[in-house]
Amino acid sequence: MSAGSELIPSRHDEHGRRRKYLGTAFAIVAGLATVVGVIALIVLIVDVAIDGLPRVTLEFLNSFASRFPERAGVKAALAGSVWILGLTTVISFPISIGAAIYLEEYAAGNWVTRVIQTNIANLAGVPSIVYGILGLALFVRALQLDRTILSGALTLSLVVMPVIIIGAQEAIRAVPSTIREAAFGLGATRWQVVRHQVLPMAMPGILTGTILALSRAVGETAPLIMVGAVGFIAFTPEGPMDQFTVLPLQIYSWISRPQEEFRELAAAGIIVLLLLLLTMNATAILVRNRYQSRG
C-alpha cells in the first residue's frame, strides 16, 4: 500500500478510509473462504442424504454384505471399523503422548533431538499407502501377524502417531513456563510437575490433535487394503487376530458396482461412517470439556 506522497491536510483521512476499506474487504474474503467450506460440506451431506438416508435402517446396520442390495448391510464393516479404531487408539495414544512429553519436558536440545523432531515432522507428511507397504512387510510378513485386525491397527497407528505427537507437543508447549517454575519452586519433582500441572493443562489440546488424527484414520482405505482388509466377509471379528473389513472399503466396493442400488447403499454407508465420526468427536469433546471445567 502506497501512502500519498503529497503533504495535503486530508492525507490522514484518506489513508484511514483506505485502511478501513481494506479491512472490510479482507473480512469479506475471509468470510467467503469459510462459506466455501461450509457450502461444500452441506452439498456433500445433502447429496449423500438424498441417496442414502432411506437405506439407513437398523436392518442395514445389522446385516452382512449381500449381492441383493435390499438385503445388504454394513455389520461386518462397522464392527471392523470400530475394532480398528479402538485398537489404533489404545496403541497410538500412550506411545504418542509419551514421545511428546519426552521431547518437550525431558530431551536435551541437542542435534539428536532435532533429528528426531525433523523426522517426526516428515513422517506426518508421508502418504498413508507407504505405511501400508511397511505394514505388509513388517507386521504381516516379518512378524507373521497375518492379515488381521492387529496388523491393520498397528499400521494405522504408524499413520496417526506423528500427527498426534506433533499436536501433543504444541499443546504441552502452550503450557506457560511460569507454572512449571512455580511448581519446581515449591519443591515438586519433574514427574510431579508433568503429572499434576503440565498434562492436565495440555490435555484439551492433546485430545483435539488425537481426534483429528483418528478421524483421518477412520477414513483410510489404502494402507488397510495393503495389510489385507477384505471385500466380502460375513462374520464380525471376535478378537484382534481375526480378519476384517472396514467401512471405507465396503463403500468403495459398492460404489464400483454397475447397479444403481449399490450406489445408494454406498451413500448409506457414507452416512454410517459420518455418524461414527460424529460419535467419536462428540465423545472426545465431552472428555475435553471435563478437563477444561476442572482445569
Partner: peptide
C-alpha cells in the same frame, strides 16, 4: 486427583467401545 478421574473416564469409554463390539461378534 482430577487427572486420574479423567483418565479413568477415557479408559472406560475405550473399554466400552471394544466391549460393544465384542458383543456384536458373539
Amino acid at each position: 486427583m482430577t487427572f486420574r478421574g479423567s483418565f479413568m473416564c477415557t479408559a472406560i469409554i475405550v473399554t466400552l467401545a471394544l466391549a460393544a463390539c465384542g458383543g456384536e461378534a458373539g
